[in-house]
Design a protein around this nucleic acid. Structure first.
Length: 848
RNA sequence: GCCGGGGUGGCGAAACUGGCAGACGCACGGGACUUAAAAUCCCGAGUCGCGCAAGCGACGUGUGGGUUCGAUUCCCACCCCCGGCACCA
């Protein structure tokens, strides 16, 4: 018998897990698999408790599933490429690789001290050539399929990070990493054609039934499919159409008879020609330039005054056959749709405001159900559905029907067609930085863009010593890297010097864990067929539209190159809440981080794990409190004292089967088995880890209450003699409770549980022992206490045999003295007996 | 504006299918042990009123209505907080 000394037992078990490679697994088709994964970590240096909460959540799941007989894959690794390593190199003159691996070593130690049950043999770091070689391999496959392509375009540029950002990486107009406002640059860039999968990515969302609604909504918004039509408005010479046309995209073709003018984005290709052909090209161009110079962020977020000017040109509305003016407007986006819109001021709020501002006509073509309106009288656009008016032969149709009919009509005349437009753009993956995967392409003057042959992969990142952080891609300055013969014609050629976005690395790492050392393929298809998909994936919600949409895309690319057969990589997703301190997210700059190592030193990893899991459900944010952690530590001391002190007294206890338990012992056994049931369901599927822990706490309280009644003193000091327990039945019930308790707690507090389990005389560990088995008979109540209400107000409690008939329950309730008192002089209207749960007597108040 | 989540004691929270609101814990108060303190063990506690007391009563889950024998839970309207999207035609 001894005190609870977490530092000793935690070290002991962590050493043992490492020595026995306790969490290593292999493919075993005879057992059900469970792939449990937490989003891997960027090796920033130190993990704080906000980061490690996520690893704890996954570990609870992994450890519980292991005990329940699953073959559990629970790996970990490092998202090891990225800018901070390079920035640190610039600042401290250390090589990014040194910085990265030093950080990995430190953080790995932190995770091991937390007792997270990772299969460390499978650890990967994405900056290793053995890993990024397969980024290059897949990029080549995508290039071959036309899914990776290069084009010049306006891209998002972060001045501070000196690199391009994908659309997904622009948050509120700023860089997702550093917040610097994003500017536009015109660059030659590599793109991955995620839009080829846009429909599939959207349509499969409803199959993700175990994802949070919030994430599904965010992805749906991000993909932003809108169904509409393209319609061509011929450019007019006077009032006659020419053969040239401006094409618009609209979701409201039903309003086309009310299209009073057409608006062009300042970036629209025809703008320059209109300028050149205008009476005063210089003034025209100046106005366009002013629009284009508007702050990009403000333009995208709509925080600008809507302005425009007439080009002096007209197009013919192809349905009304009347000329309408063409304006250039600052709020029309060049990169969406066709960069031109038909403006229907009566039925679009933006167009309405624009028309009123510049005194343009407003023609009503949709009447709301039962209402009428005139363009002159409108104070707002009517954007709802209704019935068409003033729309030629289409008048009288519903908006819904009109959309179909007008689209068909346009198609029949070759002036338009149905089309689908996405907000989602192709993924720009070129980065003008060093610490990333080299893009495996060689540019030859004769052959064009030629992929590096698979046999020559990986294209290794050359070691460079100078990091300036200035200007273009660092690799462009490494002559030996850049100047290579063309793989096809052997003439001198140049290597691509940009590196890949690090989100490429994280888009498929979960498959690599299944087969992390494969040297001939990214992974063996049969191995991934066994382990995949990830059954339980947890991480921060900040990846809802970055990592999680890219991964769904990559998983499909792997499917289409024949390496996997599933569509969706993650079956169940949990987005964990952040840990706050003083109301703010922990960050080094705010100086409010809690270092897990400090807490482990003071209270042990088990107490830290228990506290973080107990304080709130996993999805919720939590506020860190030291007193809460102390409470968890106190509780574990209480568990330790009960278990360790009683072990000698219960060591020889008989098995519970067939024993004649008395009332107290039965009550304890009931508590034990009810707790097993509750904890089991609370962890999986409910993931209410906080209530699972409170159920265990209640069992501990019940155990102490039992000891109190029997005069057993588990809380006695170290030097007290072990208590004697007279009845073998009592010892049996106690041992059963302790053994259940230790195992129910073991996903949360693995070190403490293993230690107590060993001290209880088992030498094969809690995993081998398995999850405690619920015994419904032992959990059953003989008698139950149910509330008795009068008119919904609690008036008395009734103790009655479990399973009593409704009639017997009713009579017993009515006979209670407290009920009799309340019923005096009242008339019972009816009595509701909710089987075994409640009695409610409905009365009418007596008059007078 | 649209979408999603939420609002419950001093605090973190619980209540699974409409059935005892506040489990469990933190902080707090009392008792036992101790020369004393810490630790530990036991007990108490939503608010208000009456009572010396055991107890009794009223009120109580953001606000207002509704459905129901019964509502934290379902419906309608509204207020507030958090997250996401947003001039996307």
């Amino acid at each position: 018998m001894s005190d609870y000394r977490p530092q000793e037992i935690e070290k002991k078990w962590q050493d043992r897990w490492r020595e026995t490679r306790a969490f290593e697994v292999k493919v075993d088709p005879s057992r059900p698999k469970f792939y449990c994964l937490e989003m891997f970590a960027y090796p920033s240096g130190h993990a704080h408790v906000g980061h490690v909460r996520n690893y704890m959540i996954g570990d609870i799941m992994a450890r519980m599933k292991r005990m329940r007989g699953f073959n559990v894959l629970h790996p970990f690794g490092w998202d090891a490429f990225g800018l901070p390593a390079e920035n640190a190199a610039i600042k401290n003159h250390t090589h990014p690789e040194t910085w990265t691996f030093d950080n990995i070593a430190h953080m790995k130690g932190q995770l091991q001290r937390l007792g997270i049950s990772y299969a460390w043999e499978r650890e990967i770091a994405t900056c290793q050539p053995e890993y990024y070689r397969w980024n290059q391999w897949l990029f080549t496959r995508m290039f071959e399929k036309g899914l990776a392509y290069r084009r010049r375009s306006n891209v998002n540029w972060c001045e501070s990070c000196a690199t391009v950002l994908a659309n997904e990486q622009v948050v509120d107009g700023g860089c997702w990493r550093c917040g610097t406002p994003v500017v536009t640059r015109d660059l030659e860039q590599w793109f991955l054609r995620i839009t080829a999968y846009a429909d599939e990515l959207l349509d499969a969302l409803p199959t993700l039934t175990d994802w949070p609604e919030k994430v599904l909504t965010m992805q749906r918004n991000w993909i932003g499919r809108s169904v509409g039509a393209r319609v061509r408005f011929p450019i007019a010479e006077g009032v006659t159409p020419t053969t040239e046309a401006i094409e618009v995209f609209t979701t409201r073709i039903d309003t086309i008879y009310g299209a009073n003018f057409v608006l062009l984005a300042p970036e629209h290709p025809i703008v320059e020609r209109f300028a050149a052909e205008s009476p005063d090209p210089a003034a025209f161009r100046a106005k366009v330039a002013a629009f284009r110079a508007l702050d990009r962020t403000a333009r995208l977020t709509g925080e600008i005054e809507k302005e425009g000017f007439a080009t002096g040109r007209y197009v013919i509305n192809p349905f009304t056959h009347t000329p309408v003016p063409v304006w250039i407007a600052n709020f029309v986006l060049g990169e969406y749709g066709t960069g031109a819109v038909m403006a229907v001021p009566a039925h679009d709020q933006r167009d309405f405001e624009f028309a009123r501002k510049y005194d343009l006509p407003v023609t009503v073509v949709i009447q709301p159900e039962g209402g009428t309106s005139e363009g002159d009288e409108l104070t707002d656009a009517y954007t709802g559905d209704g019935v068409l008016v003033g729309s030629g032969s289409f008048s009288g149709l519903s908006t819904d029907e009109a959309r179909t009919r007008l689209t068909a009509e346009a198609a029949a005349h070759g002036i338009g067609e149905a089309t689908v437009q996405y907000r989602l753009k192709d993924w720009g993956v070129s980065r003008q930085r060093y610490w990333g995967t080299p893009i495996p392409i060689i540019q030859c003057e004769v052959c064009g863009l030629v992929p590096v042959p698979d046999a020559d992969l990986p294209v290794r990142l050359p070691t460079i010593s100078e990091f300036t952080g200035r200007g273009d891609s660092p690799l462009a300055h490494v002559a030996e890297f850049v100047n290579v013969p063309c793989p096809r014609c052997q003439r001198p050629a140049r290597r691509e010097t940009d590196t890949m976005d690090t989100f490429v690395d994280s888009s498929w790492y979960y498959y690599r864990y299944c087969d992390p050392t494969n040297e001939s393929l990214p992974f063996d298809p049969a191995t991934v067929a066994y382990w995949g998909p990830v059954d339980f994936y947890s991480g921060g919600v900040e990846h809802a539209i970055l990592h999680l949409i890219y991964s769904r895309f990559f998983s499909r690319v792997f499917r289409d190159v024949g390496l996997v057969t599933i569509d969706e990589p993650f079956t169940r997703l949990l987005t964990q809440g952040m840990v706050l301190r003083h109301g703010a997210v922990m960050s080094k700059s705010k100086g409010n981080v809690v270092d897990p190592d400090d807490m482990i030193t003071r209270f042990g990893a088990d107490a830290l794990r228990l506290y973080v899991m107990f304080v709130a459900p996993p999805e919720k944010e939590v506020e860190w409190t030291d007193t809460g952690l102390e409470g968890a530590y106190r509780f574990l001391g209480r568990v330790w004292r009960a278990a360790d002190h009683l072990i000698p007294a219960v060591a020889d206890a008989p098995a519970p089967d067939g024993l004649a338990f008395d009332a107290d012992e039965k009550r304890l056994r009931r508590a034990t088995h009810r707790t097993i049931d509750r904890v089991t369901r609370d962890i999986d599927p409910r993931m209410h880890l906080n209530t699972a822990i409170s159920a265990v706490m209640e069992l501990v309280n019940d155990l102490y209450a039992f000891c109190d009644i029997r005069g057993i003193k588990p809380g006695a000091r170290d030097d007290a003699p072990p208590p004697a327990i007279a009845r073998p039945e009592a010892a049996a019930a106690l041992r059963e409770a302790i053994e259940a308790l230790v195992r129910l707690l073991s996903p949360f507090t693995p070190h403490l549980s293993e230690e107590l389990w060993e001290r209880l005389g088992h030498d094969d560990g809690v995993v081998a022992a398995g999850w405690p088995v619920f015994d419904a008979a032992a959990a059953a109540e003989d008698e139950i206490e149910i509330p008795v209400q009068i008119n919904g107000k609690l008036r008395a409690r009734l103790t009655i045999a479990a399973g009593a008939s409704d009639e017997a329950t009713r009579e017993a309730a009515l006979a209670l003295p407290a009920i009799q008192t309340h019923l005096a002089g009242a008339e019972v209207v009816k009595t509701i007996v909710a089987g075994g749960r409640l009695v409610n007597i409905v009365v009418k108040a007596s008059k007078g």
